[in-house]
Simulated scan of single mutants.
Amino acid sequence: MYNEPIFLEPVLQERIWGGNKLSTEFGYQTPYEHTGEAWVISAHPNGPSKIKNGPLEDNTLQDAWEKHGELFNRTEAAGESYPLLVKILDANENLSVQVHPDDSYAKEKEGVPYGKTECWYVLDAEEGAELILGHHAKNREELQESMEKGAWESLLKHVPVTAGDFVYVPSGTIHAIGAGIVILETQQSSDITYRVYDYDRTDANGNPRDLHLKQAAEVTNVPHKDPKGEIIQETIEDLTVRKLVQEAYFTVYHWDLRGDSILERKKDFLQVSVIKGEAAITTDNKTFRVEKGMNFIIPNTVKYFSLQGNAEMIVSHT
């Protein structure tokens, strides 16, 4: 069916902490004053991407997953839902401090197929920008006591970041993206968030935003342990490939193209987001120009493809 990449239209999401960089830096048509997220590769019902080319143009990615499993080498064991979600987030202000459940809790308590393990590639960070990643509580009783008292400064761990940093965030990790940071997030296809602290902000109607301290206390990993990982690098012709993480739910790479490279798709399918520069991708004698802000899937029906140009990409697969 498809002997070419499947290009996708991003879905823009309004967020109280969002800014305008998704427009100014990526060229997306932002419909809100505070546009915080672009769901750039998504089959989630809260923001499914539309296909922009080929026989399935104007269908959603979820439509393709359900009706054309051959594009993803989908089996019954893969379940009914597309497994991954890729976003670009513009944190003009601090995001709420939050935590996500694992698969078993999400299925049992929320009735959804996936919890949320995620990872972040920092695209841009203002001087002095930082994340919250983890906590200092030694046991669950200390965690609950600190939450109830609102002892956030002593509880939460702050981590400075700069552009090019990579952060792995397993389910159960208390976290927050700080103001002045733009990230590309690769995650399980889940939209379950338990808000722990929100800086006493109010919504558009002046009401405090809901917190979910009970659920957060139940799902948070105690004590917190910083994830350990090794970045592995290889070179394929003019392409430098850095494997950022390989875990149960996804493997994520940073590709740095400086010339030409011929590649074989060895996984069921590849998700690709262009984060810098421009290039050409050729499949079966069809050539497509790609540039910063474009997102596409190399389907299972494409075995070999070539890249030419100068560009950086974040690539992922299950």
Rank of each mutant, 00 (worst) to 15 (best):
L8F: 07
Q13N: 01
I16V: 13
G18T: 04
G19S: 07
N20Q: 15
K21E: 15
L22W: 03
E25Y: 05
E33L: 14
E33V: 09
E33K: 14
H34E: 11
H34C: 09
E37N: 00
H44P: 08
P45K: 02
P48W: 02
P48M: 06
S49H: 04
G54D: 06
P55R: 06
L56E: 11
E57R: 13
D58P: 01
L61Q: 02
Q62R: 12
E66P: 01
E66V: 12
E70N: 14
F72E: 10
R74Y: 05
E76H: 12
G79C: 12
S81M: 10
A91D: 11
E93W: 00
L95N: 03
V97S: 06
Q98S: 08
Q98F: 06
H100I: 11
P101V: 09
A106R: 00
K107E: 11
K107R: 15
E108L: 13
K109T: 05
Y114H: 15
G115K: 07
K116F: 05
C119T: 03
A125G: 12
E127P: 00
L131A: 10
I132H: 03
L133Y: 08
G134C: 12
N139T: 04
N139S: 06
R140A: 15
L143R: 07
M147P: 09
E148D: 13
A151T: 08
E153L: 02
E153Q: 06
S154T: 14
L155P: 09
K157R: 15
H158L: 08
H158T: 13
H158K: 15
V159L: 13
V161P: 03
G164E: 13
D165H: 11
V167F: 10
P170H: 05
P170I: 03
A179E: 14
G180D: 12
E185P: 08
Q187S: 08
S189K: 02
S189Q: 06
R195G: 07
D198L: 09
T202I: 14
N205W: 13
G206M: 07
P208Q: 03
R209C: 07
D210K: 15
L211R: 00
K214L: 00
Q215K: 15
Q215G: 15
N221S: 12
K243L: 10
L244H: 01
Y253P: 08
Y253G: 09
W255N: 05
D256G: 08
D256F: 02
G259P: 05
I262M: 10
E264P: 00
K266T: 10
K266Y: 01
K267Y: 05
D268Q: 06
F269M: 04
F269G: 00
L270G: 04
I275N: 04
K276I: 00
G277H: 11
A279V: 05
T283E: 04
T283A: 14
T287W: 05
V290I: 15
M294L: 04
F305I: 10
F305A: 10
S306A: 14
G309M: 04
G309Q: 07
M313K: 07
M313G: 10
S316G: 13
